[in-house]
Nucleic acid binder design. Structure first.
Lengths: 341, 341
DNA sequence: CTGAAAGCGCTTACAG
DNA sequence: CTGAAAGCGCTTACAG
């Protein structure tokens, strides 16, 4: 690989001049610029980012930290990633997906390595040790999700509270009085639990109580087989329930399949709505599920914008954004049966 | 951030000695080692990977190149990634997912940046320009997938040829004579087309002809909605067909749903088997699809092993591995109907 | 076993 | 507008 020095030699200029013309960091005469550019082309020169990073302290690489070895990627997580990567590219950065457990030590190792300019966290726990670690460091970061205490922490997140409340009120309008929330489990209790689940359970409990409804909670694994398991359990344990809030994206289609295998008709016997899921997943089931769609594209983009604004010193405000899910109707929502089955 | 020099000062030794103790690159007396380690702890020292990379030419980061902005991640692709990342970690490397189009220029920019030690390619096209670029460079690489001409190229791939042949013979055993292959489209014709689709079409055409069967090909987008579209098209255009090879993972459940919405019973009217898909996807449909499961975990692991063996100079052989899909039965496979519907 | 020094490929004050 | 030189944080022959 040709180095900048090689280019300088060939063009008969100094190393510094090559740097100035590449970076447009100082005025360079047209004639000199031409010589340098010709030399670069001749040698097929490309700037070594490691050398540059050491001198400048910037690699222009951002890491999206995802505990991929612990949590399987949901389709919605994939959208977060692709949308974030896209936006990063537009703004001149490379965003890469960096698999890493929710572990303060690992984060600090990465951020002190100098290999990345900033990090975006996903799958945030209420007492996430990574956030504490980052708050004490100088490396810019942003969360997609949020911790229990959000003071001073830049984040963007789904507004689970308002979404769940709206979903419950939709069930009420349809005459349902007995609801179940199905989720993917609270995760690591030591870390305060997985944010979306913890918040959703809380508001589900509060709102059902306040509206005088019966509300129970079930959990299963994040897979289609998990959904089928959940359906069996649901049929056995909740014969009176007519409305299900499904907040376990990957289990959704399996759950619907399992209900039907057990002889339930949707929505005549049971109504189901997916929470914070995607059109692609809900249309895998027959009938297609109604869904509150996660604003994944928007949040991915905003999370990256938040981070880059700080890196580029474009903003010193502290963005804390909540975005609601949007409702899309589906054939699994109907009026409550007079008497189930 | 404390530097190695800071540690040396505090421990009253030279910079070199600190490096020797950290890297175990030269013998260090126990006493000196203790002093250095104490100083490191005191300062919370962490080695800056950029400085190290510049001196050593190694970052211990590997990039899995995936055109994430062009191709949506399938669940099987996710498995490739997590399995590869896991194996890389076991062997002392960080594997990150680097979104990048099938573009020689972009690859060369990355590999000459010095930020990664090697790359693994996915979504390989028959005439993939990235492979030509990498073959001419000094950066180690491996493919998950393969090009048309594989001479001198290290790769691991699904054995589509033998898998498709077995699937066809299974249909024959069940009495089917009229088959359709559904795929996700050939992709970029300029690049020779997407390897799995090109190879599968070829062998499907050859084997059906050789066995005296009728064989047609349909393509649709990689989504559940795409699957429902395909089902409509199938019902309209292929009234005689009784067997479907579904090689479009994300469209699979939507296709099954769409067939049933059109009044078909599975497998009484039509049999369907998924090719190179996953248990998780096929169990989203009701009934669950039979499937030839992609050996994604194994291939992800082997792809990384291939790359790291070269990086660590453990092997100078050229691995070229093909692995068959394994069959898992499902309720969508049955004997051919006497007369359809 | 330990250290002084050159070097990895860049950037950037400073001087002219 | 151009250049010589110091410096970013490490590693590693070389010398002792």
């Amino acid at each position: 690989m040709a180095t900048m020095q090689d280019v300088a030699n060939l063009a008969n200029v100094s190393l510094a001049t090559v740097s100035f013309t590449i970076n447009n960091s100082k005025p360079v005469s047209p004639k000199t610029r031409a010589k340098v550019e010709a030399a670069m082309k001749d040698l097929g020169y490309r700037r070594n980012a490691v050398g540059s990073a050491l001198a400048r302290g910037r690699t222009h690489v951002l890491a999206l930290l995802y505990p991929a070895l612990q949590h399987r990627f949901s389709p919605t997580s994939v959208r977060f990633f692709t949308s974030a990567a896209d936006q990063a590219r537009l703004r001149g950065y490379n965003l890469v997906l960096w698999p890493m457990s929710n572990d303060a030590e690992a984060v600090s190792e990465l951020t002190s390595s100098g290999l990345v300019d900033g990090v975006v966290l996903m799958e945030v726990q209420l007492d996430d040790p990574r956030v504490a670690e980052l708050s004490g460091s100088t490396v810019p970061f942003a969360l997609i999700g949020r911790t229990r205490d959000t003071a001073g922490i830049p984040f963007v997140d789904v507004d689970f509270e308002s979404t769940v409340e709206k979903a419950i009120d939709r069930f009420i309008q349809l005459g349902h009085t007995d609801l179940v929330l199905v989720d993917g489990g609270i995760g690591n209790q030591l870390l305060g639990g997985y944010g979306p689940v913890a918040r959703t359970r809380k508001v589900f409990g509060e709102v059902t109580a306040q509206r005088g409804l019966s509300g129970a909670i079930m959990s299963g694994v994040h897979s289609s087989a998990g959904g089928r398991e959940l359906a069996k359990e649901f049929v056995a344990s909740h014969p009176e329930t007519t409305g299900v809030l499904m907040m376990n994206e990957q289990a959704g289609p399996g759950f619907v399949a399992g209900l039907q295998q057990a002889g339930y008709r949707l929505p005549q016997d049971v109504s189901v709505v997916a929470i914070a899921s995607s059109l692609d997943i809900v249309s895998m089931s027959e009938p297609e599920m109604a869904v509150y769609i996660s604003p994944a594209d928007e949040l991915g983009r905003l999370g990256v914008d938040t981070l880059i604004d700080r890196l580029d010193k474009l903003s010193d405000t502290l963005p804390q954004l909540l975005i609601e899910c949007s409702y899309s109707s589906g054939a699994t929502m109907g009026t409550a049966p007079k008497r189930k089955k």
